[in-house]
Every structure is written in C-alpha cells, then in structure tokens.
Design a protein around this nucleic acid. Structure first.
Lengths: 278, 278
DNA sequence: GTTCCGCATGAATCGATAG
DNA sequence: ACTATCGATTCATGCGGAA
C-alpha cells in the first residue's frame, strides 16, 4: 500500500490564495458547499447575489486546474428567497461555469427528509438542495456499484417468492459471487439509485452546525473515488467532508478561511473518537 | 351556486393563436407541461433548445395577460441530456420569464418514484422534474390547508381499501407530500407538506400516455384554486388537468394543437366513466 | 372477497449503426 | 462530420387474472 505524507491536510486561508499552491491534475473529487450569497457575511464578505458569479469564477478556474481529467466537481448549493422570490445567482453560476469550460453533467437533488420547521403564508418548507455535478471531460470515472441500495419492499417480497425459472433467470443475470452471497442476497437485492438522494439533515451536534450530514459526502466519495484517492474541499467549514475521508480512507485537502472553523475541523478530523483506518 | 356556460372548455389550435382570444385577468391557475425541447417533434415542430426561450416568451406574455393578479402559473418541465450534458434552456427560460415581468416565486420538485429504468456508465436514472411556480404579484392566493387533508373521494376510497401488506408497504414508503397525507389519514396529526412531492408516474394506461399523473395537477389545484375557479392548460395534451378539474369542480380551459389529442381529451373529460360532481 | 402473482409500461439515455 | 434511428439496459407501479 502506498504511504502518503499528508493523507489529511488542512490549510488555513482564503481559497483564492491557497488553491494556486496546489499541483495541477491532482484531485480526484472536489466536494464542497460554498458560502451562499448573503450568508456567512464575516468570512467571504457576504458576497451579494449580484457579485456571486464574478467572485466564484476565478475559484472555479483554479478548481478545474487542480482536478484530474477523470475527476468530478460536486457543488452543494441552493438559492435563498429574497423579497419573496428565488434568487437567480445559482442559475447564472451554472451557465457561467459551463461557459468557462466545465461540463454540467448532472443535477442531483438532495431531499432533506427532516427539513427545517416553519410556516409562511406564501410558501412551504424548503426540503431540497441542488448537488451540481460538473466534470472536465465526458470520460470521468464513476463507481456505480459502490452506492447500490436495497430495492423497495415490494420488490424484495417478490424476490423472496421467486421460484424455478424466475430464480434461474435472475441468477444468470447476476455475474459475481452468487453462491457466496446467496443468503445475503435473498434479503436485500441491490439496485442502482437515482439522481434523487433521500437524507435527513443532522441536527444533533451542538458544537457546530455542519452544512450537510456525513452521508452526503459519503455517497459522492463512494461514487467518484477509491480508497487512497484525493478529495478537496475549498470551503471546508467544520470539516465534515474530511471526517468522512478519514473514515473511508481517502486523502483529503481542506481549505478554510475562518480560524475558528480550522480549529474545530482539526479537532473533529484528527481526534481519536472515531475508529480509524490509519 | 353560480352556473357557468362553459365550465369545461376545449379549444383546438396553436396556443399562440388561441390565447389572444381569451379575456384578460380571468384565470386563477395556469398548470401546464409544455413540449420539452426536442420532444414531441410532430406537434410544435420539436423546438430545438436554442430557440426554446424565443418560442416560449410570447406565449408567457399572453399567459401573464390572462392570469388574475392573484393567480399562479405552474410550469412542469425538465431538461434532457444532450451529448452527455444537461441542457441549459430551462435555466435560460427561468431568467427570461423573470426578465419579462414574472416573479419566480418557488421551485417545487416532483420526485418520480418510478422513474424510467436504464443503466449508463456516466449517470443514474433521472427521477425528478421541476415544477416552477411563477406569479404576477407577491400577493397571490395559496390555500395551504387544502393540501393537508385528502378530500377527493378517490383518495378516501383508496385509503379505505388499504389493508394488510399493502398498507404496510404504503406506510414504509411515505415521505412528505402525498404519502404523508395518506399515512397520517388514519389517526396521526396532519402537517403541511414541503416543496418536494413524491408521486409515481402513471404507466398502466394503454390508450394514452399522460405526461403526469392526476395527483400532480390535483395537488396544485387544491393549493391555488377554489371550486368554481378557472384553470388553464395551454398545452393540454391528453387532458389530465381537465379531467381533474371536472372531478374537483374547477372550471377548465384547455388548448391543444394536435387533433388526436383533442379527441382523446374530449373522450376522457366528457365521458361518464368517472363519477362526476356535475 | 382477499391476496398473490405475472406482465406491460413509462417526457430515459447511451452507443452503435446506418444514411 | 453530422444527424437519424434502433437495441439494450432496468425498476416501480397498477392492472387483471389466478389461487
């Protein structure tokens, strides 16, 4: 097994300054949730919606430089409502990224099962966010088998009922390790997921407010990287992506401008509270 | 109760020609699923993505003219993949509509539980569509309580029919939206839904292929109109929206360019096969 | 009557083949 | 080189017939 000098690396500073110090074509996956327009005002100056694209584009250029040609860039973002309307800056950003050379390969939906409570006269609770998938080329890598999920209950039932020819037909379709996995397979036949992810938000931790639950980066890490691959988060925050990288044995480079977040992320990622593979 | 001369009206022709004949400020809800770019080639000529906005804008202007100031315009649309990338024409359309005077109030997500099967090396199955909500003013009407409780006779019947494993399966499947309504029906408290709707597409009918299931327009009809209100669908297709209007006692004006669809819609909407409230 | 089971079907997408 | 057509892939759903 290859030994890496800095499997988990945390860099303090503005990613506009730090990214240029990273080598080109070195990152397998960029997974990040940037500060939304008009949010986190004290860090990146609370970029107003009108300047958001202009601010983000140079960063996106650097991200494209450090990403391997086979790599993926997953951007978690959702526009807020301003004066009763949805902002347009996310849509403008998608167009600008495509204009600048990125391929807009897919838009995944994160359905937040336990969305923030509330009631307003003119809208319901917002229960979804975008996960925009950009790539450098049409030949990016994707490990689909690693995120297979159990079928719906009705299908499982049907499989359990399989008899004779049906069973044989299914068996022939399944290439690998049928005999060994037979007992497992009966209970939970696995199928490929869709581009809609159903995940609850994490609300238990009082010390920090992560933008997303661990299972969100976990899903994309499994889908787009292998153990030992390098994952980059230029807006690390409290370091959830890095935490998952440690657990899944991926290398990680996180960049964060706010010192308090740096300290928090170090504590979360380097502490021994989780069983580690390192 | 007020009597209307044409509670259910079907008009044949290109909506670019027909819409100007309708009175201004008369419609309470526009619910429609326009032909997607490069789809339905034989009807609107298969508008290529590049010309889509240009084609749609004059129609949108007419729609804004006929809509009441308090009304809503719900647009069901989803971009396809072209050469491995998602098309941008839907995003451009949103911007153009806003530019032309519409307020982009919300984007609902329709999660298609039974999305079309398939497997490809670079993407998963597409299991969601956009339901873009536009309004003329910030003071539009919204009957939120009406989507907490299923009122349609068919829904009550369906729930009453549920028993044993069917009931269990349905319970396990529920999230927000419709599923929640049904599962809560038997005793739990009612809650407001979110902006994510979980609905399966209807695929059982052999005679016609509706773009969306009845429960999709049903939800928005209940949310944005009252009985007696007028609903417009400028791209009627096989008339699913009109069918629901009849069942829910809303007035309906449907416009369709293709004669075969006109005939089919007439048969579906005016036949006596469904128990009617009229 | 219930419950169970088989089967057709759907705003899909890719890659190969053909004009 | 560019467009058009076609086969292969794959899964939740609801209907109708069977047990």
């Amino acid at each position: 097994m290859v030994e890496y000098e800095h499997p988990l690396q945390i860099l303090e500073g503005d990613c506009r300054d730090v990214l240029p110090t990273l080598p080109a074509d070195s990152v397998d996956l960029i997974f990040t949730s940037p500060p939304y327009a008009d949010s986190r005002k004290k860090t990146y100056g609370g970029i107003p919606p009108k300047q958001y694209v202009e601010w983000f584009l140079p960063i996106a250029d650097e991200l494209r430089r450090v990403l391997k040609p086979s790599g993926s860039f997953v951007l978690n973002i959702k526009e807020k409502t301003v004066n009763g309307e949805r902002s347009l800056y996310v849509l403008e950003l998608i167009q600008a990224l495509k204009q600048s050379g990125w391929l807009w390969t897919e838009e995944f939906i994160w359905h937040k099962k336990n969305s923030f409570p509330g009631k307003w006269p003119n809208r319901f609770r917002d229960a979804w966010e975008r996960l925009l998938h950009f790539t450098k080329s049409r030949r990016f890598v994707m490990y689909q088998d690693s995120v297979k999920i159990p079928t719906a209950a009705s299908t499982i039932k049907r499989v359990a009922r399989l008899s004779g020819s049906d069973w044989q037909r299914r068996k022939n379709r399944t290439q690998s390790g049928f005999g060994a996995n037979q007992s497992h397979w009966l209970g939970k036949e696995l199928v490929y997921p869709t581009n809609v992810l159903h995940l609850a938000t994490e609300c238990g931790n009082k010390k920090h407010s992560a933008a997303f639950p661990e299972r969100l980066p976990e899903w994309f890490l499994k889908l787009f990287t292998l153990p030992g691959d390098l994952v980059l988060d230029p807006f690390m925050g409290s370091g959830t992506t890095g935490l998952v990288c440690r657990r899944l044995n991926r290398r990680f480079t996180g960049i964060e401008i706010l010192h308090d977040y740096i300290a928090l992320a170090r504590e979360r990622i380097f502490s021994n509270q989780h069983p580690s593979l390192f």
